[in-house]
């Protein structure tokens, strides 16, 4: 006999999946909400860039500084740009950027839609001849699915720049040599799978954030819980997707 929390967990998982699959039914049939989609892309992409950029820069800098002593011990200091760039591009920047977005965007979607739900704005939209799923959910999920890969690409560049500064704090490497070493090491097999998985990160963040807001229970406490659980579940999903993506990349021998 399964206990209630386990049954609730699978019920929730089923509901989120159903909610997420509905996106594919609604997204490709008119009416298209382009104006709202552009607005959401602006909020998700442009407004998150400073935070993602700062985090990526610090990650690049810190990873480089912390990796140096180990490489020096083995006399492999010259390999620092190569090792750092592979780590940053393949794993660290995509996952950190996605986690930052899960925190910032997931919580804001959970809270915004949750508060719209409890103040009956979603019902008001429906009686005003609008499909609220299309207007609120499809636009946000499209925005996160498209913008998070873009943020990750920008984050990649910024983190590599952080890596360059990190290399020069105790060492001395020219701008030209650093980038030569980075691009000698990196292949499309490093960049493309890492960027492809971020589309799934973005989709998961959008769907979970919207689901939690859309199904928020009554009251302000419910809105807070929606925002909170949107972040927790999105973050866990990012790690699960990452785990699956790494296995697939490894199986297909893409790296």
């Amino acid at each position: 006999m399964l206990s209630k929390p386990i049954i609730d967990f699978f019920n929730e998982l089923g509901s989120i999946s159903k909610f997420g699959f509905r996106f594919f039914r609604e997204a490709f049939v008119p009416r298209y909400e382009f104006k709202e989609m552009i607005r959401q892309c602006y909020f998700v992409g442009y407004k998150s860039l400073p935070l993602v950029g700062l985090t990526a820069f610090i990650m690049g800098l810190v990873i480089t500084i912390q990796s140096r002593p180990t490489l020096v011990e083995f006399g492999a200091e010259d390999w620092l740009p190569k090792m750092v760039s592979v780590s940053l591009i393949r794993e660290i920047t995509p996952v950190i950027a996605a986690l930052i977005c899960a925190g910032k965007i997931g919580s804001s979607m959970g809270a915004e839609l949750g508060s719209m739900k409890v103040t009956e704005q979603i019902d008001a939209m429906e009686v005003s001849g609008t499909n609220p799923y299309k207007y609120l959910v499809v636009t946000r999920v499209v925005a996160t699915t498209l913008m998070i890969p873009l943020l990750v690409l920008l984050g990649d560049a910024i983190s590599l720049y952080g890596g360059y500064l990190g290399c020069n704090i105790k060492g001395d490497i020219s701008w030209q040599l650093y980038w030569n070493q980075v691009f000698e090491t990196l292949t499309f097999g490093d960049i493309i799978p890492a960027v492809l998985k971020t589309f799934f990160f973005g989709y998961a963040i959008g769907v979970i954030g919207c689901y939690k807001g859309y199904h928020s229970s009554k009251g302000t406490e419910g809105v807070g819980q929606s925002a909170n659980s949107a972040v927790v579940i999105s973050s866990i999903m990012i790690f699960v997707i990452d785990l699956v993506a790494v296995q697939i990349i490894d199986l297909l021998n893409l790296t």
Partner: peptide
């Protein structure tokens, strides 16, 4: 339908709130 909580869209001005049903219908 007049909602109990008014259900005005917080992110829109009064004008946009009023225009919304006209444009959507």
């Amino acid at each position: 339908f007049l909602f109990q909580s008014n259900a005005l869209y917080d992110s829109m001005t009064v004008r946009e709130n009023l225009e919304f049903p006209l444009r959507r219908h």
